[in-house]
Structures are given as C-alpha cells and as structure tokens.
Amino acid sequence: MTYEIAVIGTSWGGLAALHQILGALPSSFRLPVVVVQHRHKDSGQFLPRVLQDDTSLCVCDVEDKTPIVSGNIYIAPANYHVLIERGHLSLSTDEPVAFSRPSIDVTFISAADAYRKGVVGIVLTGANSDGARGLKRVSDRGGLAIVQRPETAESSIMPAAALRQVPGARVLTLAEIADVLAALTVAPAQRRTGT
C-alpha cells in the first residue's frame, strides 16, 4: 500500500504529543502531513514556530491554496477550517463544527474524499470527540486509521471516541505512531504547484 498524505487531529494535550511524533520523524520523511490542533482563535503563529524546533522538515502555516509538497508539515491556522483537495489546501471560515474551527472532522473527511485510500488518519489526545467521524471516513475509504492508545493519552476522550467509530483502527503509542509513519511507503512526489 502506498500513501499520499497524513492527517493528524488533536486537542487537549496535543502540543506535547505533536512534539514527540514530529521530533521522531527522520529528515528523509516524504509524506505531507496536515495537523489540526484545536486552539484559541487568536493564537497566531505560535504553534508552527514551536513545532519547527523539533524537526528539520518544513513546518508551515497553511495559507489559502497552499500547494501540498512532500515531506512538509502543515499546521491548520486558528479560526479557519482546512479543506484538503488534490494538490492543495483551501481554507474556509464556515461555522465551527461541534464548537471547533479548525474542525478535525472537516479536514479528515475532505482528505478521505480527495485522496481516498491514500490517506493516513491519526487521532491523538483530546477532551472532546472531534475527529471520530473523520477517522471513520478515512477508514471507510480504505485509508489507514491510527488512534493513540487511550491510556497513554493526556486526555483519552478523543482517542476513545475515535475507537468507538473505528474499532479496527491501529492502537499505538506516540513512539509507535512515529515509527509506523516513518516506515510507510509514500506515493511518488506530489506536484510542486497547486490547483
């Protein structure tokens, strides 16, 4: 199986979890990754900056119509939804979904519908159930569904909710998730320009 994109969703406790996963990815990592971390609407550029310290991969703030490039880590901006299309990312200011903007479900579902079985969906620690429906869509489309082992999560609510929706998901610790990601076969390079 070859994969084209990974999507990671997390909320409460996500920063430490993301540190651990991104920090463990090799510099040769080729899969584009889109990270949706719930946070305050005016939180600005703090998250991409602090995550960039963990890795030699490029951690980018998402702008509208950002081209998807192999090995880049894209961070959903506060107060926007990120929609994934083949080759680029679009933004939306539509209503929050289940009180969240960015919504993990919105990004995961758009990824699953655009890249179908080429998607790896990963739900990490969090204190709500966003991401569960999105992960189900990833799984239903034939993608790889991964959930952080709930008892190892700072908040187990989000992983547990995802597991209820996708009982067959792979249940892994953060270190194992990084290993699995690094070992994936990645589809040939993405186009360098969007749309």
């Binding site: 289940a98 579902i109 519908d113 179908r116 159930s129 429906r133």
Partner: peptide
C-alpha cells in the same frame, strides 16, 4: 456532557457515493 460529533450534519456525501 459535550455533544458528541459522532452524529450531526453530513460533511459530504455518504461513503458509498462515487467521488467522480
């Protein structure tokens, strides 16, 4: 209790729907 997002509005077509 926080509302669960397990149900709620469609975020797109049913999974059986052909994207093409």
């Amino acid at each position: 209790a926080l509302p669960l997002s397990d149900s709620g509005p469609l975020e797109g077509p049913p999974v059986s729907y052909d994207p093409d």
